[in-house]
Design a protein around this nucleic acid. Structure first.
Length: 837
RNA sequence: GCGGAAGUGGCGAAAUUGGUAGACGCACUAGAUUUAGGUUCUAGCGCCAAAUGGUUUGCGAGUUCGAAUCUCGUCUUCCGUACCA
């Protein structure tokens, strides 16, 4: 037996272990029908440069779960790849005077190396790069299939337009209504774009949310609201002195009676008609004055609303209702749904501010919670009681009303006016749209990076003008989970045999920010592939885990009215006695800075911590263990350098402790456990049960680690370490190492090899210990009016009467009960005894 | 604006889902060991109080024998809001 290093040297051991895994392809998996499969997937990273802490967290959680499932004897698939197309590559290419593909490739190389240094158990043979033609080939092919099925179409839609740069901007590139580069005011441009008919599946996507048993309820709720089904009625309003009509959707007829204004979006077709005869409206709704995505009404500095001088006629009350145009109505939304009714509440700001509403003085019944029930089926108009059902019948007779169900969900716009993306496999011949023949796929990216130029090809003597736009990158990330099951399959999009075996994903892990968009597209795309008979499951994911963000301290000072962010390292920070930051100033110039609190790690705020440096200093196992231990996966995590050091010290202690005991050869004779050992054995058994529960049932990995750390510290401090029964300690260490393995795989790999002198821990099973029967100690809390007064330990079952009898003899209970009348005694067996006085 | 979530010591957090609030760890304090730092070990540690004890889960009400947990109101922070990924 070789002597183990006294010192814990993670750098050395981690390299050895990682090389072993790589050489032996330990985590390569294949279809094996004899084994139960487990597909564990973390959302694929965008190759932005270096790995950041958010990645480390996401992939560590995924790896812990994968390794745990592997120890349960399952065939675990944990793949990784790169979401390689996207806007940042184009921006970086311009800034660094390079090409997006070169920048992306370099980043992938860097980040791959960093991922490997963290010891994640990926099947690297399945690595996918979405910018690889072998990948997007099938995306283009599938789009053509959808086109054939009439599930895609082209229509006009608004985009952000910068007049100065003559480019279309992403929402992110618009800051406070201005271009982020040249500060020009942004306006909208309406251009033709490709759409996928996700709305056709709105009902199904909504209904199936109920079947997602192991998804977080907040995600399900957000998706429900995003799809936004509402059942109601469509009512037709005539326009006064005009042949035009306005269709209105409402859930409640009462609202219509009380309506005192109709508000149109600037892009509504009626608005356009009005603008033809009214210069003021024309000026007001000029594209230059309208912006996309205004969430808050008060962001517009200029006039937000304009009265059209037109009135609609309320089909119920026959009153004239003023029609207004409001720029702050979400354009994207109202572009389709067309109309909005103002609320009937008399306190509404619209009514208070605008006299036009006031002049329209018919009776308004403000509804309060109290009288809403009474009025449910009736309304009061001019003090007369009218049945709602009667109104409905009359309106229906005149064809002014019909039942309607609407959805908030809009069709998926997939066109992007970008170079660095999957080319859309469509074209035009003599201005007529055609799909490209499948035989010429994949359509590669044009060498010419200028998006404004259209390329032409000749096929079968036809001159085809190619679509110069590319797909939304959500397209790539919507089906990668399927391609991972057959990444190198040449004869089709999906190899059914592998897909049927591996899918659906058993555990999917990613940030909560993807709760609606990505995860809805993901479900939608999976459903499409299911409908077209490529895969067997309509839903992609059984269990979903959404992890929080990684935060850290941030500091800034003000220069020229701008915040200049500064890294913690170049500051002297003064804490108060209790450790709170009270002051900070720069090391060099002693300039005071402002503490911005604990915020999301980002390059721009200069508060990022490089995982690379931490790995170099303390090793992968330390960073893995810390990031899991520091916070529950769901909540955000604050980076604490001292906490990392604490974990490192802990691993050191554990390493040295093992070193002390493994050197002793196992004893041949079996010995019985003594009392202390038996007690520890019970704790070990309980710990395994808890750790299993925390990992598998509630994903509270931080609690699992807390349990193990506590157990190890208990072991190190225990007095039986130097007793004769070395076998006991050896056995205990081996079991602890097993349950610790998913978290610190290098550490455990090395220790296991040394202790067992043969085997590989990667093939070990999760330990199960039989509970050791012990005398049952029962703790009963004695309360007076629900407040704890005493803790009573009993060893044999006792009746309520016996316990009360015993308790009221105790001095402090006696004191509390003197001269008091006991109203009630509540007894919950083996738990609580509460005197109500 | 709309949708979702969170708020517990100096800090990260725990609380078996309505039943001992603060497990586990960091930081801090005191002592021991030590070679300067670090390491390691022992003890203490929500707040008030010398102490019996009292009081504490953003704030304000309510339900209950009993509330961090349920209900209503309110404040703050974070995520998303359809072209960042």
């Amino acid at each position: 037996m070789k002597k183990m290093q006294e010192q814990y040297l993670p750098k050395k051991i981690e390299k050895i272990v990682q090389k072993y895994w790589e050489k032996n392809k330990t985590f390569k998996v294949q279809v094996d029908k004899k084994k139960e499969k487990y597909y564990c997937l973390a959302m694929l990273p965008y190759p932005s440069g270096d790995l950041h802490m958010g990645h480390v967290r996401n992939y560590t959680i995924s790896d812990v779960i994968s390794r745990y499932q592997r120890m349960l004897g399952k065939n675990v698939l944990q793949p990784i790849g790169w979401d390689a197309f996207g806007l940042p590559a184009e921006i970086a290419a311009i800034e660094n005077n390079t090409k997006p593909e070169i920048w992306t490739k370099e980043n992938i190389q860097k980040m791959k190396k960093q991922l490997k240094s963290l010891g994640f158990s990926y099947d690297w043979d399945r690595e996918i790069k979405t910018c690889d033609p072998r990948y997007f080939y099938w995306e283009q092919w599938f789009f053509i299939q959808l086109y054939k099925k009439k599930l895609v179409y082209k229509k006009t839609a608004p985009v952000n337009w910068c007049e100065n740069d003559q480019t279309i901007l992403a929402n992110e590139q618009v800051i406070k209504g201005k271009c982020w580069r040249c500060n020009t005011k942004i306006n909208i441009k309406i251009i033709p774009q490709w759409f996928i008919k996700i709305t056709k599946f709105a009902k199904e996507l909504l209904k199936n949310i109920e079947n997602l048993e192991f998804w977080p309820k907040e995600v399900k709720l957000m998706q429900k609201n995003w799809i936004g089904r509402s059942k109601g009625m469509q009512i037709i309003f005539d326009i006064y002195n005009s042949a035009n009509k306005i269709k209105i959707f409402t859930k409640n007829l009462e609202n219509v009676i009380n309506t005192n204004a109709i508000i149109l979006s600037p892009l509504h077709h009626i608005t356009k008609k009005f603008s033809n005869t009214n210069i003021n409206i024309k000026k007001f709704i000029n594209n230059k004055n309208i912006q996309l995505n205004i969430y808050n009404k008060y962001k517009y500095k200029t006039k937000k609303k304009i009265f059209t001088n037109k009135y609609a006629i309320n089909p119920i009350t026959k009153k004239k209702i003023p029609i207004w145009i409001d720029k702050t109505i979400n354009i994207q939304h109202s572009y389709q749904t067309k109309i909005k009714i103002i609320k009937y509440n008399i306190n509404n700001k619209y009514i208070k501010k605008n006299s036009d509403f006031k002049s329209n003085n018919y009776q308004i019944n403000t509804i309060t919670n109290k009288n809403v029930k009474k009025k449910k089926n009736n309304i009061y108009y001019k003090n007369k009681k009218i049945k709602l059902s009667k109104i409905y019948k009359i309106l229906k007779l005149f064809k002014k009303i019909k039942k309607k169900t609407t959805f908030k969900l809009r069709d998926w716009s997939v066109s992007r006016q970008r170079h660095w993306g999957t080319p859309i496999p469509m074209g035009t011949v003599n201005n007529k749209i055609i799909q490209l023949p499948e035989k010429i796929l994949p359509i590669l990216l044009p060498k010419n990076q200028d998006i404004k130029k259209k390329n032409k090809i000749t096929i079968d003597n036809k001159k085809i003008t190619l679509e110069n736009e590319t797909f939304d990158t959500f397209m790539e990330s919507s089906w990668y989970h399927i391609r991972y099951t057959c990444p190198n399959y040449k004869y089709g999009m999906v190899e059914k045999k592998s897909a049927n075996y591996w899918l659906p994903i058993d555990q999917y892990i990613g940030g909560i920010e993807h709760a609606t968009m990505h995860l809805i597209y993901f479900r939608f795309y999976n459903r499409l592939l299911y409908k077209l008979n490529f895969i067997k499951n309509p839903e992609p994911v059984i269990k979903l885990l959404c992890q929080g963000m990684v935060l850290s301290d941030a500091f800034y000072y003000i220069k020229n009215k701008k915040k200049i962010w500064i890294n913690k390292k170049s500051l002297n920070i003064i804490h108060n006695k209790k450790g709170k930051i009270i002051q900070a100033y720069t090391k060099k110039k002693k300039k005071p800075v402002t503490y911005a609190g604990i915020i999301k790690m980002s390059k721009s705020k200069k508060n990022g911590i490089s995982p690379k440096k931490i790995i170099k200093k303390y090793g992968a196992d330390t960073i893995r263990l810390f990031i899991i231990f520091a916070a529950p996966p769901k909540s955000s995590l604050t980076w604490n350098p001292k906490g990392v050091l604490g974990i490192y010290k802990f691993l050191n202690r554990f390493w040295k402790f093992i070193n002390k005991h493994y050197l002793i050869k196992p004893q041949k004779t079996k010995q019985k456990m003594n009392q202390k050992e038996l007690k520890f054995y019970v704790k070990l058994q309980q710990t395994i049960t808890k750790v299993t529960y925390y990992i598998e049932k509630i994903n509270k990995l931080n609690n699992a680690v807390a349990q193990i750390i506590s157990l190890v510290n208990n072991l190190i401090k225990s007095k039986f370490c130097h007793k004769k029964n070395h076998n006991f300690i050896r056995d205990v260490i081996l079991i602890i190492i097993k349950i610790f393995h998913p978290f610190i795989p290098h550490f455990s790999f090395f220790v296991w090899k040394k202790l067992t002198n043969k085997k590989n821990i990667d093939n070990e099973n999760w330990p199960i210990l039989k509970p050791n029967k012990k005398k049952n100690k029962i703790t009963i809390i004695i309360q007076i009016n629900g407040k704890k007064k005493k803790i009573l330990n009993i060893y044999n079952k006792k009746t309520k009467g016996e316990i009360i009898h015993k308790v009221i003899k105790k001095q402090n209970i006696k004191n509390n009960l003197i001269n008091k009348k006991i109203k009630k005694i509540i007894y919950i067996p083996n738990k609580i005894l509460n005197f109500v006085i």
